[in-house]
Structure formats: C-alpha cells, structure tokens
C-alpha cells in the first residue's frame, strides 16, 4: 500500500462547491477512474482520503491537495491522467506523486486578492509597523500583529499577493481585507481570492 498525493486546481464556478461536496465528488471520481484504493473498514466503508484544511467557499485555488492510498501497483504517474479524464476542467488534477511530507507540514499559503481599490496602497498599508489583524475564534477575538503574521505583501500582476500562516495560527485573507477596511479605509466589499502556493516551515515550496 502506497500513499499518493493528488494535486488539483479548484477554479471558476467550482469555488462554490463546499468542502463536503468536494470530498464526495473526488470519491466518485476515484471510482469512475477505477483506481484501486484503500477503503475504511466497517459498516459504511468509504475511501480513506485526507484533505488540506478546507478552502473558504468562494475562493479559488491552484494548489490543492489530498492524500489517499493505492492498494495495487498502479504507478503514481498514471493517477493524474486517469482522474483528469473523469473530472470537469474546473477541478483539474495537475499532478500525483508519492509524498515525502505530511499535509500538516504546510506552514504558509500564498493568496492573490483582487478587488476594486488601489492594490499598491493596500500593499503599503500592510507593510506598515503596528497594524493589527483581528480574528474571531470560538474562544473570542484574537489580535495578531500583521507585521509578524504576514510573511509577504506585494503587488503582482495587478493583484495583492499575501502569504499567511496555515495551521494553528492560520489566518484567512478575509481577515486581512477587514484590517485594510478598518485601518486603511479601503471600503472593499467583495474580492476574488486565489490560493496560489503552499510553503513548508522553512519557506520552501511544499510538495
């Protein structure tokens, strides 16, 4: 039995597909692709799959991932084309390989944000010392120092690109937009967000 990591994109209207529905969709895709994978034991067996923390509804991504286990000798290289053939273009499988890391090793995520406001000014605002980001959690509100939380804030291709922590101290791009509105008066009502890259703790691209 080998682990295989499937990398995929979630773009366009697929951003409105909830995480739960996505899991169901991939499980059916695995069946359509006739891949021999490991099922959980028990009364109601289902494919054993591990996903990255859910992407917010409405966000796109170019770097999603889930892990499952192959129980036969199917080469990992065959997995991506077989899944690609049975999924819509908006859920495009880009790669599949035997992982050397855990999905929980993802430490930072790069997002690209597009909105109707001055992106350069937004990047500059986020670069200022002393800016705080507020995040509501189940245990109340947490205030994070933007400077330490934001690994990067820059403008690329007309979008604001930011790098945020994932995992325990994770931040959602929404929190950053709220901070921009609160402290910068940007008045951003809606924005498009794309998850672009995953990084390990040492800053290298996560695989």
């Amino acid at each position: 039995m080998r682990n295989v990591r499937v990398r995929y994109e979630k773009t366009g209207d697929a951003r409105f597909v909830s995480h739960l529905d996505l899991v169901r969709t991939f499980a059916r895709a695995v069946r359509r692709a006739d891949l021999n994978v490991y099922y959980t034991e028990g009364f109601n067996p289902h494919i054993k799959m591990n996903f990255l923390p859910p992407l917010s509804l409405g966000y796109e991504s170019l770097c999603e991932a889930f892990d499952m286990r192959l129980i036969d000798e199917t080469p990992c290289a065959d997995v991506a084309p077989r899944l690609r053939a049975v999924l819509p273009e908006l859920l495009r499988v880009t790669d599949a390989y035997e992982p050397e890391t855990e999905l929980t090793d993802v430490a930072f995520v790069r997002y690209a944000l597009r909105f109707d406001a001055d992106v350069n000014a937004a990047a500059a605002t986020l670069g200022r010392e002393g800016l705080t980001i507020e995040k509501k959690t189940k245990r109340g509100q947490i205030t994070v120092d933007a400077h330490s939380a934001l690994r990067e804030a820059e403008v690329a291709d007309g979008a604001l690109e930011i790098v945020l922590p994932m995992g325990e101290a994770s931040l959602n791009p929404r929190h950053v937009v709220e901070a921009l509105n609160t402290y910068g008066g940007f008045g951003i009502e809606d924005f498009r967000c794309v998850r672009k890259q995953l990084y390990a703790a040492d800053g290298s691209v996560f695989r």
């Binding site: 909830s18 059916r28 908006l90």
Partner: peptide, 15 residues
Amino acid sequence: LTEVKKPSRYCGGEV
C-alpha cells in the same frame, strides 16, 4: 453567490 444557501446548485459544471 456565497450569500445564498448551497450556491453550487446554481452553477452547473458538474461531472
């Protein structure tokens, strides 16, 4: 669209 319940039912694009 994220303001409404189950937005994917208005988008099509299913398998």
